[in-house]
């Protein structure tokens, strides 16, 4: 222990209670029950999934709840070659932006069941849930999406979400 000191560790820690608000609370309760729920804007009619309290384009508060399907279209994706803290998955893996059927927004979710070389925009996918007894108030109940045997979606159907 004779080396001069050149560095110190000074961890900073914050503990607090987080509340997601009314709409996201309802959304997370639905997720805990295994249901995917979006909200529709009364003005532009777009459906947000995950549900939000109001429309980011129109500024209108949402009232209508819309069921969202487990199937969807991969709008865009990234191949991840470097892991980061607290997320250790075999590399490389694919993180996808998926438009679930019934929604007009994308959700970021892990893609499995296909090699990175074969991933393409427009692929049809389906959500794979974690075991029911582990469902929590979390979007992470959807463990990943995997390809399904359907023709790719037309580019025009998701071009505004890329």
């Amino acid at each position: 222990m004779s080396e001069p000191v050149t560095g110190i560790t000074t961890p900073i820690r914050m503990e607090y209670r987080y509340t997601p608000g009314r709409t996201t609370s309802d959304f997370l309760k639905a997720m805990k029950g295994g249901r995917m729920e979006g909200r529709r804007c009364p003005s532009c009619r777009k459906v947000y999934f995950p549900a939000r309290g109001g429309c980011s384009m129109c500024g209108r508060e949402f009232a209508e709840t819309v069921p969202i399907k487990e199937t969807g279209t991969l709008a865009t994706f990234a191949v991840v070659n470097v892991n980061f803290a607290n997320r250790v998955i075999d590399l490389p893996y694919v993180t996808a932006e998926v438009v679930f059927d019934g929604a007009d927004t994308t959700t970021m979710v892990l893609l499995r069941g296909v090699s990175p070389e074969e991933v393409r925009m427009g692929m049809r996918v389906k959500a794979h849930w974690i075991p029911k007894e582990e469902w929590d108030y979390s979007l992470a109940n959807i463990d990943y999406v995997e390809p399904i045997d359907e023709p790719d979606a037309e580019y025009d159907s998701y071009k505004d979400l890329v």
């Binding site: 560790t9 961890p11 900073i12 820690r13 503990e15 607090y16 209670r17 009314r22």
Partner: peptide, 20 residues
Amino acid sequence: MSDVLSAPHVMEFPYTRSTG
């Protein structure tokens, strides 16, 4: 009005600093 959820949340940054 529905019941609003809340949960404990911890955020931590393990900074290493150069002393000079």
